[in-house]
């Protein structure tokens, strides 16, 4: 059960994938779909996010907003 949640700004994501190894729970992966710039953008693939913000902290483009239940 997720304690955290992320919101991804899909149009800003460049699909670099730097965030993926930063996630301790393998929550995120690159989509098979592309955004309007042609990038395979980041998406959430399960609900085990703990809201640690590691993904957001390494994101070069600041596309991830992180929430954590109190």
């Amino acid at each position: 059960m997720a304690k955290g949640a992320i919101v991804i700004e899909i149009e800003r994501c460049k699909g670099c994938g730097v965030c993926i190894p930063a996630c301790p729970n393998k929550v995120i992966a690159l989509s098979k779909k592309v955004n309007s710039k042609g990038y395979n953008y980041l998406e959430v693939q399960n609900d085990s996010c703990i809201g640690c913000a590691n993904c957001a902290i390494v994101c070069p483009d600041g596309v991830i907003t992180v929430y954590r239940a109190k």
């Binding site: 957001a56 929430y67 109190k70």
Partner: peptide, 9 residues
Amino acid sequence: IIKPENLVY
């Protein structure tokens, strides 16, 4: 969870 009071980043 996505509520202003839960924002961490």
